[in-house]
Nucleic acid binder design. Structure first.
Length: 421
RNA sequence: GCGGUUAUGGUGAAGUGGUUAACACACCGGAUUGUGGUUCCGGCAUGCGUGGGUUCGAUCCCCACUAACCGCCCCA
C-alpha cells in the first residue's frame, strides 16, 4: 500500500538539504549581526489567537486555516503565520518588562495555509521572520527592512525591488477605506466581478485589478497619502529618510496593501525575479495595535516574514546555485572476508578520532567500492586485503593525486588527521 | 473556491487498439582473480497514476477519481 505525501507539501531530500542549511545558517548570522534573538513557538495555537490577531475577516482566517479539535475539545489551528504567536509569547511571558528594549526576535519554521498549490505557494511553507517589539522609532522600521535586504544580499540575490507604503494610523486607514468605497460604489457595476466583491471587503485591491486597469475612476481614486495625519506623514518621511541615507533604494506604491488586519503605518514588500506569477519574496510592516489587541500593554511593533521556498525560486531564476557537495575524509575498501570483518572496528576508530568515514555495505567489488568513494568525494581510500592484514598496515590512497602509502593500522587515524588537518 | 495542461522504469523521454513497451542518463556486472573519474560488452518496466467502462483484445478510446504543474483569488 503506497501512501503519498499530502497535497501542497514536499520533502527536502538529502541532495537539497544542504541548501536549506545554508539559508538557515545565513539567516541566523544576519540576525546576530542585527542583534535579533531566536524565539521558538508552537506549530499550533488556539484558533482564537489567529482570529483575533490576523483578523476575522481576512482570507487567511476565513478559508485557509487548518483548524482542528484535540481530544480535550480545544479549538486549535496550525499556525498560518508567525507574528501572532510571537506577540502571544511576548505578552504571556511579559517580555515588555525586560530591561533590553525593544525586544528583537526572529523565527524560522513551517507555516500552514489551506490553499490551492502553485509555483511559490504550498500548504506547508517555511518562513523566516523578524519582529521588533516596544519601539516606535522610525529607525527600527528601517532596520527591519535593512535586515531583510542584507539577508538576501548575503545569500547572493541581486534582482530585488523594495516597495514601500504607509497605511497611517487606524483612523487614516479607515477614512481612506470609506473614501474608496464612496468613490467606486456609484459605478461599481462597470467593474469586474472580482472588483465588485472587493468593494466592501478590501477596496484597496480594486486599484491593482488587472482587468479594470484603464477605467477612468482608477486614476482619480483617493490615495492613502492624502489621508495620513500629520504625525503619520511625518513618521513615514523619517523612515524614508533613513533608508535614503542607508543607500537602500525603494519604490513608493500607495496601493500596496497587506492582507493581514494588524498592519498600520509602514508597510513594505520585497519582490524578486521569478518565472511564475508570484514575485513577492517578503512582506512586512508596522503593527502598533497588535500587542494590546492580544491583551498586552499598548506596544508598538514592526516586522517581516519571508518565504524560503520563494527565495529558492528566486535563486533559481537568477541562476544562482548554493549547492555545495560535502566530502568524506576517508572511505574503507575491504577485499576478502577477513578484511571485511575488520572494517567495522577500524571505521569506528576513525570516526571516534573525528574523521568522517564510510565503507561498502553492498558486498561490492573493489572497483565498485572505489566508484562509491568517488561519489562520496572521499579524500582518502584505505584499502585492506590479505597483504595489508599480514603486514599490519593499510594501503592509503590519496584520491586527489593517486599516490599511495603503507600506514600501520595503529597510526592510521593520526596519519589521516595530519593529512586532512 | 474557480479555470487550463499533464500523468510511461531511479531520472529524462519515445511509442502503438493486438505476439518481446524505443532511446539516453544513472545504477549493477564483465573485459582488468586487489584500485576511481576513459573505452567496449552485457543486465536493468509480467509494467505504462487509481478505479470503472467500450472491445475478441487497451498503456493507447470513454468516464470518474487522485495527484502534479500552471493561472485566477489571496498571500510569504
Amino acid at each position: 500500500m503506497f501512501i503519498q505525501i499530502p497535497r501542497g507539501t514536499y520533502d527536502v531530500l538529502p541532495e537539497d538539504s544542504s541548501i536549506w542549511q545554508r539559508i538557515e545558517e545565513t539567516a541566523r548570522k544576519v540576525c546576530a549581526l542585527f542583534n535579533y534573538k531566536e524565539i521558538r513557538t508552537p506549530l499550533f495555537e488556539s484558533t482564537h489567537l489567529f482570529q483575533r490577531g490576523v483578523g476575522d475577516t481576512t482570507d487567511i482566517v476565513q478559508k485557509e486555516m487548518y483548524n482542528f479539535k484535540d481530544r480535550g475539545g480545544r479549538d486549535l489551528t496550525l499556525r498560518p503565520e508567525g507574528t501572532a504567536s510571537v506577540v502571544r509569547a511576548y505578552v504571556e511571558h511579559k517580555l515588555f518588562g525586560l530591561p533590553d528594549q525593544p525586544v528583537k526576535l526572529y523565527y524560522i519554521g513551517p507555516m500552514f495555509r489551506y490553499e490551492r498549490p502553485q509555483s511559490g505557494r504550498t500548504r506547508q511553507f517555511t518562513q523566516f521572520g523578524v519582529e521588533a517589539l516596544g519601539s516606535k522609532d522610525p529607525s527600527i522600521d528601517a532596520e527591519v527592512i535593512a535586515l531583510a535586504m542584507t539577508f538576501y544580499r548575503t545569500i547572493g540575490l541581486k534582482k530585488l525591488k523594495l516597495v514601500l507604503n504607509s497605511l497611517g494610523d487606524p483612523e487614516s486607514r479607515a477614512a481612506h477605506r470609506r473614501a474608496l468605497i464612496d468613490h467606486f460604489k456609484p459605478s461599481i457595476n462597470e467593474f469586474c466581478e472580482d472588483c465588485r466583491n472587493r468593494l466592501e471587503k478590501n477596496p484597496l485591491r480594486i486599484l491593482d485589478c488587472k482587468k479594470d486597469h484603464d477605467h477612468p475612476l482608477m486614476a482619480t481614486a483617493p490615495s492613502i497619502i492624502d489621508f495620513l495625519t500629520e504625525d503619520s506623514r511625518d513618521y513615514f518621511e523619517k523612515v524614508k529618510a533613513i533608508l535614503d541615507e542607508m543607500g537602500i533604494a525603494y519604490e513608493l506604491d500607495p496601493t500596496l496593501v497587506r492582507g493581514l488586519d494588524y498592519y498600520n503605518h509602514t508597510t513594505f514588500e520585497i519582490m524578486g525575479s521569478s518565472k511564475g506569477a508570484i514575485s513577492t519574496l517578503t512582506g512586512g510592516g508596522r503593527y502598533n495595535g497588535l500587542v494590546s489587541e492580544l491583551g498586552g500593554p499598548e506596544t508598538p511593533g514592526v516586522g517581516f516574514a519571508l518565504s524560503i521556498e520563494r527565495l529558492l525560486l528566486a535563486l533559481e531564476a537568477e541562476g544562482i546555485s548554493l549547492n555545495n557537495e560535502a566530502s568524506l575524509d576517508c572511505f574503507i575498501t575491504a577485499i576478502g572476508e577477513k578484511a571485511r570483518q575488520k572494517t567495522p572496528v577500524l571505521l569506528h576508530k576513525l570516526r571516534e578520532a573525528g574523521l568522517s568515514a564510510d565503507k561498502d555495505y553492498m558486498d561490492r567489488k573493489v572497483k565498485a567500492q572505489f566508484r562509491q568513494a568517488d561519489r562520496d568525494h572521499a579524500k582518502f581510500v584505505v584499502v585492506i586485503g590479505d597483504e595489508e592484514l599480514a603486514g599490519d598496515a593499510a594501503n592509503v590512497k590519496n584520491m586527489a593525486d593517486g599516490s599511495q602509502e603503507e600506514i600501520a593500522f595503529s597510526a592510521l587515524a593520526d596519519y589521516l588527521k595530519s593529512k586532512i588537518k
